[in-house]
Write a protein that binds this DNA or RNA. Structure first.
Length: 273
DNA sequence: ATGCCTCAGCTCCTGAGA
């Protein structure tokens, strides 16, 4: 079972690249089962559901004009779909969650929660700069997310939280750690929130496996940052402790960043089983 | 360089991204 997250920076612009990438993944033997998209930048009525259906995918989406917007593109049907963090007032479309059948679940337990996987796709706030109103919103959002994910984990031991976190774990995720010391995406406060998610019993999938040096998921469009590999690792797939033993591979796929007119983010891909 | 690139929108500039 294959999971992926990709901030596409406008689905209207990137749709052909997403469809090509899904087709290419399938032709390589293992199709993506669940793809979380961020930054759709479109209203719900503009979502290209028919194009995904033609490619063999169902979709759940939560759009917004100009900014934000998230979706789950999936081979099987979603249930228990939730949009945004319950109880947290938010003008932004940043979260979409769904439950899916888990084929690899242990046969010993008959509980529904053991046979389903809970998937949360999220576009974490950027935060702009420490001390700004947007940073304060990011902190409030992170606090609400943690509280909700804790509740979700209690009901769904098999849980994946993936998306554009807009937070680096540590200096290894930053091309210039000294230059970006306590800058946005790298502050102690943001990293404490990320650690608080880990402390709920989640694991950074990428770090479960050997990775290349300077392993990033986002590169600025400017200054030839991708060519120089001046990037950040801010897109993450966190898996719960119950799922961790099933993880067999996880990596950033840099190939789509080499496309003509690419997103500034590359997809991260996790294989379970 | 409070810029550099890219995208959306009340589009020939501005806000936002990260």
């Amino acid at each position: 079972m294959k999971f992926a997250t990709w901030n596409v920076n406008s689905l209207a612009v990137r749709l052909p690249q997403v469809l090509d990438w899904l087709a290419q993944q399938a032709s390589n033997g293992a199709p993506v089962d669940i793809l979380a998209l961020q930054e759709l930048k479109m209203t719900d009525d503009k979502f290209p559901a028919a194009a995904f259906a033609e490619a063999g995918y169902q979709a759940q989406w939560f759009g917004q004009k100009t900014y934000n917007g998230v979706a789950l593109i999936t081979r099987s049907a979603a249930s228990e779909v939730v949009k945004n963090i319950p109880g947290f007032e938010d003008d932004h479309a940043r979260v979409i969650a769904g439950s899916f059948a888990l084929p690899e679940a242990p046969a010993t337990s008959g509980a529904t929660s053991a046979r389903t996987i809970r998937v949360i796709g999220a576009y974490f706030p950027n935060g702009q700069a420490p001390g700004s109103d947007k940073f304060a919103y990011k902190m409030r959002w992170l606090e609400a997310l943690r509280t909700w994910v804790q509740q979700e984990l209690a009901h769904h031991p098999h849980l994946v939280l993936m998306g554009d976190y807009n937070i680096t774990f540590d200096d290894a995720d930053v091309w210039d750690p000294e230059g970006m010391r306590e800058a946005i995406h790298c502050t102690t406060e943001e990293r404490q929130h990320l650690q608080a998610l880990i402390d709920l019993g989640l694991h950074d999938s990428v770090r479960l496996f050997p990775q290349p040096d300077k392993n990033y998921s986002w590169w600025d469009y400017r200054e030839f940052a991708f060519r120089r590999n001046r990037g950040l690792r801010i897109d993450h797939i966190l898996v719960s402790s119950a799922l961790r033993p099933m993880a067999s591979a996880c990596a950033v796929d840099k190939q789509p960043r080499k496309n003509e007119r690419p997103s500034d983010h590359a997809p991260v891909v996790l294989t379970l089983g």
